[in-house]
Design a protein around this nucleic acid. Structure first.
Lengths: 166, 166
DNA sequence: TCTATATATTAGACATTCCTAATTAGATTA
DNA sequence: TAATCTAATTAGGAATGTCTAATATATAGA
């Protein structure tokens, strides 16, 4: 149901009207599946739908759809930008995960990504370093040697530095 | 099915024998649900089960169970150690997510955590910093100011440092 | 051994979500 | 307008997984 509401929410913003066929295509299911789901969603007050007419979201339905959209976005971003998962795969995985995550976990994940992308120390260069780590195999020693100086300084937070030889 | 195999796999290591009742308790379902699932799993060659006897995993079944165990562990670790989700909640979420993740994504996640915990720059102090960030609200400015020096140096990778005043 | 309790199984139902095949409604066009 | 094509619906069935109530089996105590 959540998937349907998300799909309808998206289509609603992309197109003038939302039809059964569009939903079926978007979700990769057959039209009868859509028909019966629309009946269910209508009964539960999440869409307004009369046979052969266009589909409209109710307020409740739009809320659910939007929330799913948001979750999808957060997960997709994490999967592609941090874990460097292929875009299409990330889309699939996000689609499945978005239903199982609690709001608390999702919020934490958002915090995490904000932190990584807001703080230079945790930002782009850091991610690049992570990429190197993955590309060129596990090299904890090299990694340690390289970053020790920074790390030491960081432990002391704002204490002025005495550098060790790298 | 995967949940059942994971539960059986766990119980198998904890106890001498695995009974319907134990599985039901572990999974918080009623015994008839377990009975019928065991029939299904038996038909698919994932467990060996004769009525009223003890449950045994086949090789295939144990493989699935172990894989689920592994996934659960990775996710639980990420949720508790990085996102600082409450242990019990993390358990629930991991339980739901473990079925939806691809191996590729899971491997990336493992790499990510290995990296964070192997490299000092990305290690414990970094997580602590993330915690502060969450606890005391979003403070991108403070964060930027504090870590700029390290970040600049890091950009140049192994270039000897010329420190700026903090 | 016999009976009471604990454990497990069937029987039968329900919810969710999907499918194929056949039919009907609506839109297009000659 | 009639024929055609596209879109949507109904009918009927399958898979997964859950439950309650009733029944059967096993185990342990008297």
């Amino acid at each position: 149901m959540e998937d349907y509401l998300e799909a309808i929410f998206d289509l609603d913003q992309e197109k003038k009207v939302v039809r059964v066929k569009d939903i079926a295509k978007r979700m990769d299911v057959k039209m009868p599946s859509v028909s019966s789901m629309l009946k269910t969603l209508n009964d539960r007050g999440l869409v307004r739908y009369e046979k052969y007419e266009y589909v409209e979201l109710t307020r409740d339905g739009a809320d659910v759809g939007e929330e799913m959209r948001r979750r999808h976005g957060v997960l997709h971003k994490f999967l592609t930008e941090i874990l460097k998962i292929d875009d299409a795969v990330a889309d699939e995985e996000a689609c499945k995960m978005e239903h199982t995550l609690s709001s608390a976990t999702l919020d934490s994940l958002i915090d995490f990504m904000e932190f990584i992308q807001t703080c230079p120390r945790a930002g782009q260069s850091w991610l690049q370093y992570f990429e190197d780590y993955r590309q060129h195999g596990r090299r904890p020693e090299a990694c340690r040697a390289r970053s020790e100086a920074f790390s030491d300084e960081f432990e002391k937070q704002v204490t002025p530095a005495k550098k060790k030889p790298a």
